[in-house]
Design a binder for these strands. Sequence first.
DNA 1: TAGCTGATTGACT
DNA 2: GTCAATCAGCTAA
Length: 192
Amino acid sequence: MPLSRAFYFQSPRALARDLLGCVLVSRSGSIVTSGMIVETEAYLGPEDAASHAAFRPGSHALFYGPGGIAYVFRAYGMHDCLNAIAGDVGRAGCVLIRAVEPLQGAAAMARRRGVPVGSRRLASGPGNLTRALGVTRRHNGADLTAGPLTIEPRDGDRAQPIARGPRVGIARDPGRILRFWIAGNPHVSRGP
DNA sequence: TAGCTGATTGACT
DNA sequence: GTCAATCAGCTAA
């Protein structure tokens, strides 16, 4: 059962923390791939200069819509990045999913990525993650509570040691502590 | 229509 | 450590 819509009705910062340890599931035809979310970043509304809500009008409709929707954008002409919209209607904000630890379909992911099965770089990094799971801009606006792309609750209730730090790779407003990852997990993307 | 920029990656020195 | 690849969507004209 995917996470309910209500789960996404919280602040981007809180959602970024809560998504750690949850499982991102992608279904493409008969191929199912999934991975545990190990690294996220929060992006706020217009007050956050690094958020697309602040400078990409084309994404406004999604940002201000209900939570639980996928926002996929292309960066540097070749990398797609996956976000989950956070908050209720009228509240802008989203969570960038930067890295997952492969669970199901590792072989299919490795094939898409062109790296050996079991590689730690299989889905570490926003661009790698979307390629491994077969996420493209066609998923922009997709419903994460029902559809080919969903997020499921974490296994059990075991607490994860969470680390935090400044966001990576952004040109505007660096220094905000809005990046979260599972401490010690080898699948977290490398820093700058 | 032309030019610019970027929430990146991987290959190379 | 440097740097090229490559394109959607904006801006200026």
